[in-house]
Structures are given as C-alpha cells and as structure tokens.
Design a protein around this nucleic acid. Sequence first.
RNA 1: GCGGGUGUGGCGGAACUGGCAGACGCGCCAGACUUAGGAUCUGGUGGAUUUCCGUGCAGGUUCGAGUCCUGUCACCCGCACCA
Length: 800
Amino acid sequence: MNYDYKAQEAKWQKRWDDAHAFEAKQDFTLPKYYPLVEFPYPSGQGLHVGHPRPYTALDIVARKKRMQGYNVLYPMGWDAFGLPTENFAIKNKIHPKTVTERNVARFKGQLKALGLSFDWSREINTTDPSYYKWTQWIFLQLFKKGLAYKKEMAVNFCTSCKVVLANEEVVNGVCERCQSTVIRKVKSQWMLKITEYADRLINDLDGLDYIERVKAQQINWIGRSTGAQIRFATTAGDDLTVYTTRCDTLFGATYMVIAPEHAMVEKWKDRLSNYDEIAAYRTASSRKSDFERTELVKEKTGVCLQGVRAINPVTGKEIPIFVSDYVLAGYGTGAIMAVPAHDDRDFAFAKAFGLPIVQVVEGGSIEEAAYTDVDTGKMIHSGFLNGLDVEDAKVRMIEYLEEKGIGHAKVNFKLRDWVFSRQRYWGEPIPLVECEHCGWVAIPEEQLPVMLPEVDSYEPTENGESPLSAMEDWVRCTCPVCGGAARRETDTMPQWAGSSWYFLRYCDPHNDKELASREALAYWMPVDWYNGGMEHTTLHLLYSRFWAKFLYDIDVLPQSEPYSKRTSHGMILGENGEKMSKSRGNVVNPDDIVRDYGADTMRLYEMFIGDFEQSAPWNPQSIKGCKRFLERVLNLTEIAEGEGVTAALEKKLHKLIKKVTEDIDAMKFNTAIAAMMGFVNDVYDHGSITKSDLRTFALLLCPFAPHLAEEVYEMMGGVGLASLAPFPVCDESKTVDDTVQMPVQINGKVRAVLTVDVQADKEAILALVHADAKVAEALQGKTVVKEIVIPGRIINIVVK
RNA sequence: GCGGGUGUGGCGGAACUGGCAGACGCGCCAGACUUAGGAUCUGGUGGAUUUCCGUGCAGGUUCGAGUCCUGUCACCCGCACCA
C-alpha cells in the first residue's frame, strides 16, 4: 500500500487541532501529569535534529499518560531574550522583536510538523510584556527581601559581546557564546543571594528523583566544605583570619598567604617596606583573567610582606605572610594558613620560596611531596594533638580554638552569588530607580511591567553601559517614594531570569492578577518529569530551584521543589561521531527528514537511535529501517480480518503491551520500538491478525508514531481519535507461558534444550533430563558430581 | 587532582534480581519479482571450524560472570590553585 505520509500528517494534525485534543483540562479533580521539556531559545538557525529527541521522548510519555486517563499538561514556549537575537538585530538593522517573531514562527512550524502534542493554548514567550511583568515582579520580591543587592565587584567582561558574564557563562576563560577573551572589570552589579540557599539546594536534593549525574554535579558546583575559621595575631597588632579544612595541621602552619586583593594590604600599607612591589604584583594579577590565573598551576608566584608577620597561635612562632594569586579573594576569607607538609599547593610554594616544611601527620615522604592522606597516620609534632587520628585531631582542635576564643567551626561554599545585571538591550528591564534621597527604590507593582523602550541603537556602548543608558528621557524619572528626581536602572536581566520560573506560568498562562493562581499551582506543580540538557545543570536548573524555594518562602508556591524527577538526554552527534556544528558541516536539518521520510519515521528514528541518555551518531542509512517498519504496519491492514482475539498471537500481544508500557516509564524507548518491530514480524510469520488486535497494536504505537497509528486505527474501524482512546492494558494472566525452553548445560556448556512445563518441579525436570538422548550421549563415560536445577531457567550438570 | 559515565559483531545497539551473549534495526550475502533496482518480498549473516574461541585488559568468587569483587588501561562529560 502506498504510504502517503504527507497527506496523513496534514489530516491528523488538523483533526487534533479541531478537537483541541491536547489541551489540558481545567478540571482540578482529575489525576494530573505534568511532563516538561526545556523551552528552546528560538535561534535564527531553526530547529536542529538534537531538539526533537527530548521533545519526542516526553511527547511519548505525555501521550501515553493522556491515553491512560491523566489530565496532562505538556506545554511549550520560547525563551526568547538573549544575545544572538540582539546581535542579529544590530547587524541587520531589524528590531529584535521582529527577529524573535520570525524565529518563533519558524520553530513553531517545525515543532507542529513533528506532531508533538503540546498544548499550544498555553504557549508563552519570555519577551512578552505580560510575561516579563511577572519576571520583574519576582525580582522586586527578591529586592524587598534583601536578596537582591548592588555590589562593586570585579566581574567577567566579554570583550566582544561587551557584556558582563556570570561565572557560569565563562568557560575556560573565554565567553561561552562567542569564545572571545574575558577580562576582569570592576563594575557595580545587581546580585542575587543564591548563596543564602546553598544548604537547602544541596539538602533538598535528597528526596528528589534526579539522575545521579545531575545531583552529583549540583552538589559539586555548590561545593560545600566544612572546616574552621582561625584568627592569627599579627605583629601589626591586629589579626588575620583564615579558613581551613585542615585545622588539625595548625602546628605545621609555617607561613600565611593572602590574596593580592586582600584588604589588609591597604591597611598595612604604611608598615610595608615593599608596598610598591606588592601593589605591582596585585596589578599584574588583576590583569590576568581567571583562566590565566589558574592555568599555570605549577608556577607559584608571590611576594613576601616586609614589615608585618603573623603569629602561629599554637606554636607561638612568628611566621611570614605572602601575597600570592594562588589564594582566591572570593573564597573563604581570602587568606590561608599554609601547611606545606600536607597540602600540594603550599608544598610547591614553599619549595619555590625556600620555606620551612614541618610534618605534623606521620606518613609519606615529605622530602618529595606533601602528604595529604587523612585516613591513615597519627598526629606528630603537634603538642596536645600528638597520637590522635586526623579526624579526631580536627574535633579536638576546634574545641581548643573555641576555648581560647580564636576560632570556630565554619562551613563554606564554592557557589557565588548570581551576577544579575547585563548591559544589554534585549532583556527584561530591572524595575528599580535610584533616587538621590531614597537610594534604590522599587517601581510600584501596579506600574509593572516596566516596558523595554524603543531605542535608536541596540549597540552596546564602548564604556560597557547598557544601550538604555543613552535614553535620557527614559532614564530620568521621579522617585515613587519622595517624588524627587530619580534615574532608572538601565541594566537588564540575564537570559536565565525568564527561564527560572516559566514552568509556573504554564499552569495559568493568561492570569493578569498573579503569576499564576494558587489553585493552579497547587494542582499542577511540581513538574512530574522534567527532561533537559546536562549543560543546564549548574545554571538554569540551579537558578530555577532557587527561585522556586524563594517563592515558596514568600508563600506564592505551595512546594519548595519545582521538579520531582529530572532526566537528561544524550546528544545526537554527526555522522562522523563528532558534535554537530555548523563549522564541522555535519548538521542535519529535521525539515529534510520530515520531508523525505515523514514525521513518524523521524520520531521513531530519534527514539530508536540508542539509549535515550547516551549520545549517538546520526546514521542516514538506519532511518529507512524505521520507515520500513511503519509501512509494514500499514500493510497489516490488508491482511487484518474479523474481530476478537488472534489466538496464536494473544500471549505475544499481552507481553508486548506490558513491555511497551514499562519501557516508556523507564525511558527505554529504543527497546519498546524493537519489541513492536518483533511483534509485527511475528504477525507476518503467522499470516493473519484480527482487526481488533490491530487496533490494539495501533494504540500501543500511537505515542511513538501518532499519525500512522491514527490512520491504522481508523481503517480498522476504531471510533474517535486513537490519541484519546484508552491505552491498552495488559492482562498479566495472558503473559504467562505454559512451557519454557530450558537449556541443559554440562560443565557450563549447552548440550541440549528441553521444553518443560512451567509448573514442573526439580524432580520432574531431572526426570526429563535423564530421559533425553542428547544428554545421555554427552554424559557417556563421565561421573556426575552435581546437578543444579533452577526451575524455569537452566539446568547445569557438573561431571568429571 | 576531584566527581560522573562508557568500553559487547562491519555499524547503532539488546541482555530481568548472575542463568542459551549478540534481541531489534542498518549494512552485507544469496534468491524471488522485475526492462531496471538505490523499491518490495524470502532466506542467511560474531569468529574460526566440527569443536572450540569470543563482551577493553589481568586476576578472583561461583555449578555458571557482559552482569559481582580486586587491580588495570582507554575514551567521554562536568569541576578544578575552593585551602
């Protein structure tokens, strides 16, 4: 039969639209299911074959759940603010809004062509003022709770994009987007106190069904460490506080190091005979990017402070203080006690500067390398700690420090606060004004949204200020508190803002009173299954969990975790096994596949390509296997006859229902498809199938290849839409076989295969084994040592 | 260095709590139908060979190991001077 997929696709997509088949129902008494995929950034390139993989996977989940009677919310939208659009707009002199509309239209067309069952009535767009009104509203709540603050700080500045980047956006010292050099620049920035949520962001992972690598990566990124803060007195009469995780080694601290930017350098300026040298060192390191600073791991540099020394609080000895850029200003106290005997970096520095190395934990060979093992070795040369294990020594030392009032236990995090300002046009305006009298003041909520004004030029300015800063008329305003002269904040929010709460808006997308109604949030949230890329684990995923926790704290959201389950798909690689990219010339356009093979084949192939979590290379040859399968399914309609059970296939069909149902829940889409292929092969081998059984099969196939499934279902007399019909339910009793094939092994080698009644016990099975000619032949002249029978599985006879 | 992961035919990949390794698909080989086949259908397809060898490598546990344990190698991803 001729497989006219183009006509079929158009026909069924229209019928689904006409029936509003995939719209979530407003009935909150029904059992709900909320699967979610990350909404895309509508780039100018259009969809890439990587996009449909997760979309199709969760579409299968959504479609199956819908057929199983759940009220399903499977939404889609556009994360449309961002630099590429702005850059394109600048280059082509088109308004970014126009560019966005064009890109969205293209993406939407491509997604619709794939037959994805999104609820388009809930489509959202982060650049829509009715959406970003609420992004601004959330920011204001953060501001009001003191979680947004302005800070002069050295920030990462991309020399090409002319924009400040978050730490997360700097990869190997270059801009994540354009690969240009990133330098340090001091700017006043809005910051969000995500660090205040660090503990909860780690601890609450416990109850969540996230794949291991996501949890591990988040924990690693937040970087919680427990240690102690210790105060060292100095010869300047003040003191210097350090953070350490190895307070047990305090007796071995033979010098100290502070970051070049450390405030004490200025404080001690008059006492330091080599201040100029130190200042020069500081200037040199500030010019280096983070990358350069960390790249030369082996080469330790630094300057010894002449004029101020510290006193080790337990040995009473005076020790030198150095500045060195191996100590980071932003972590801990920006100062360390150096224990060269037990820290690799301190060891390298001590060797370079000829500093004393005092061993305080036995083990290793200190002449060659630092001994960093904490599990073996007792404390030595450590006064009251001598003889203790490292862990016990830590506890004892903290007690001592607290007794003496010179230190205490302390937890530190690698996680930094979130740099929230961007000096760009195409983002949400930050809804604040600066008043001469009142300082930073929030725009009253009823005046939201603060609309992004029309500007003449979207070009970033040479001085790094936002393009909005050039609009004097817009910038000048009055203070909402005192009515005096004020100036608007001209920075915009980062792209991560809009995506940090979009899953909430889907619950109630047209609400103009609240970001979403309490009832809708209570019903739909949390997201039941969220799938997205691993590249978003430390950015989007962490930010959105932070915002959800905040919204929970201020009683907007009923739950403190937004996603119950998080999975991640593998990448689709080019034919050559390399990552798909324009520069490698191995990009496959999904439009071509849909045109040449049809949407169902495309969907099926993306799912059949391999393990969903693993990356897999694109293979144009393999696609036709999926197409052949679909044609073979369609051709079954020509041999299908009658109603009722196809006796010879009954068990196979029920096993298939079970397999497909379980595999979808376990994300094993590839083996579900393989099983369906196997079943179709069985039907052809058998030569016939009833129309009712073929309808059942079509329903099983429906989540995967919905257009063809609808067609087959209709041809076989199915009533209504297959997409809305009940998903087949397996009758367990029909999946049980009467007999099993049991291999008989002799010394682990299969010598015969017996057909055995499922109910047969050991004795009955052994009787069969002994009666078997092949077995008898193989046992000739051998002595049986042992007979192992695992009913239903295998028989192994051990002989000599 | 730390964390996570992966090694199975020519290729993508299957294999439940240890139980016939290679499901399913691609490719390939042979045949059928054809003016034709890069369409379709049928059969075959891990390697040598009549009995073995085979899941990165080396050991171990077991009646039995792709699966468990010890060690080791290679590759991929994330973080990385975080004290």
